[in-house]
Design a protein around this nucleic acid. Sequence first.
DNA 1: TTTATTCGATAAATCGATTTTTTGCAGTTG
DNA 2: CAACTGCAAAAAATCGATTTATCGAATAAA
Lengths: 357, 357
Amino acid sequence: MAQHEAQQRRPSIHDVASHAGVSAATVSKVLSGVTTVKPENAQRVFDAVELLGYRVDPLASDMRRAKRRIIGAIMPEFESEFFGQMVSELEGLAEQRGYTLVAASSRESEAREKEILARMHDWRVAGVVLAPVRNEHGPAAGFMKANGMTGVLIDRVLADDAFDTVSADSAAASAEVARALVGQGHRHILVVGLGQQAATVRARLEGFRNTALELAPDIRIDVVLSESNVEPLRTLLRDYFSKREADGDRPTAVYSLFLKGTLVALSEFRRRGWHCPNDISLVGFDDAEWMQVTWPAIAAVVQPVREIAGNAMEVLFRRIEGERGPPRARLEPCKVLMRESVGSPGNGPHSGGGDRQ
Amino acid sequence: MAQHEAQQRRPSIHDVASHAGVSAATVSKVLSGVTTVKPENAQRVFDAVELLGYRVDPLASDMRRAKRRIIGAIMPEFESEFFGQMVSELEGLAEQRGYTLVAASSRESEAREKEILARMHDWRVAGVVLAPVRNEHGPAAGFMKANGMTGVLIDRVLADDAFDTVSADSAAASAEVARALVGQGHRHILVVGLGQQAATVRARLEGFRNTALELAPDIRIDVVLSESNVEPLRTLLRDYFSKREADGDRPTAVYSLFLKGTLVALSEFRRRGWHCPNDISLVGFDDAEWMQVTWPAIAAVVQPVREIAGNAMEVLFRRIEGERGPPRARLEPCKVLMRESVGSPGNGPHSGGGDRQ
DNA sequence: TTTATTCGATAAATCGATTTTTTGCAGTTG
DNA sequence: CAACTGCAAAAAATCGATTTATCGAATAAA
């Protein structure tokens, strides 16, 4: 029940002590489960705690301890399903172990990333799950290393010499996409990506290209990469298609290396009145809930969010508990869902006009 | 530059003091901008800070102060665009004011909501932005009140007698949807919602119903509400359509009161081979990026995320700075985007089969 | 010249816990 | 009976900052 007035100051350990008729040290011992306390006194402490509605002040408590029971999570953004699910998963896993997760987003800025990290260091977090904006070689990872922080890098990383990494096996998934598209008969494919995120984009691109070339040496693979943000990509893509259409050699399939690219591609198709898969096929890296309810359903590579989160936490807590040894790089397999947006080339009218309405 | 070894313990204010040849009190004063310090000493303090790479320990610092420069944000989930954007916005606004935002999700559980709130209270956050799972009368708001916390409630709330509230004007938006659908000639409309979130769902439903009945007294409005989770809704919807189809009186339009409902509706249309808008029209509350790139583009009510976030922070900081007075309930207007998923009834084949492929 | 006043800076108290050191008491042992 | 051992609990030190009280020297007023 433990009711007390709103305006009253929070009870301290000394208040509990005097109510129970013991010293503050004894209260601390009772609450931390030390057994060398007379059961009778322990009971009186519990009663006083209950009566006053006492809660340990984590600020004071943590100042004395070396580390806090807090895990920091830094994501590049919160607006996509992928990172949203990731944070949710991590939060649940931290909670299971009696830790609190505090989440922050770097909003795709390496400067902010480092700033947040510094703050988390100030807070003495026990560990950090960092999904870097770019890759494992950014300033944030350097800061963590320089300050001896415990952490694990996820998503846009390959391998690091200081921290464990966990990410999706983009290369294998991209190879599977290549097999599927080549198998359907596609011989001219456009790959769309963001260049900034060097690590994963390169893995995805190479994984796709290598397998495609191996299966069909005569294949033509065009690449449109935007170095900076998403908006330029829209323009690049528009120009690309205009030129291809003028030359009469437009690709029969598009593979987007990230979610926003898939949206941009769809929007460009729409602008031109192209329909999947009749006019062009589409596969995107990153799945989303809506992709299976639209006409056509959009083919996508599903990243194993739960597995990545689970392994990241697993590995992180091992390090927190003091495990030594060289850092490991884990790759989790993706699932490739070939949905209706992929078909064989030349099956449709290729008219350039829509077939509806 | 301020380099120091990774394993070395963090420099304290006393380390800075001895390096600068002054007392700790002086260092504290210099760093907090007190002017009664000889410029010469101040400079030596700055130099020592630079040399040692000193940062104020927020734990120690905040223990002495009453409140910390931290804002807590609690969202029902992180996986939807709406709350993702909301957290991003709030984070930016807090940062602008020199505060740090720590985000957590209650994952649609009132118990967890209260638990997180208690933890934030322990942390002595300056204020809380709470997007409650249900409405403003849940246990979390009660906890905030009982403990004299400063906060603002957003989204699934109408008005409260203890806290300021900011939310979208669901009723007005729903009225606009009603006008649009009735205007197109629809006279039999299904409304889909989740009953739990009493406050907003009722506002949306009533706003829609009142206006629709006013414009067309003969209109038939069916309502399918799932009390608990999303999955039951799928079954309810399936049964509803089966019965309606058997009776030969199925609705010509669906208005979903929340995002997941829109997805469930689309997926049900898909299962039955119905296409929008020829076979049925669809409007959803909550917009998402993908809705404008699919065929057809999905009509949606866009909630003013930036405005809600901006006003919530505005109001919250006024309270933090000590403003008195009765709590205010703000309603921000939504934008209704009527896209291709809405048409006039009877315009399509109503065949039950798709018209493509 | 003496007494106030001002000013800059330091010592010490404080926040609320944890941890180490002391103390006091009871029961054993030589 | 003194010395020793054990054990529970209290006292005191500690974490790293802020804030208050205090102090000494320089300056102003009497």
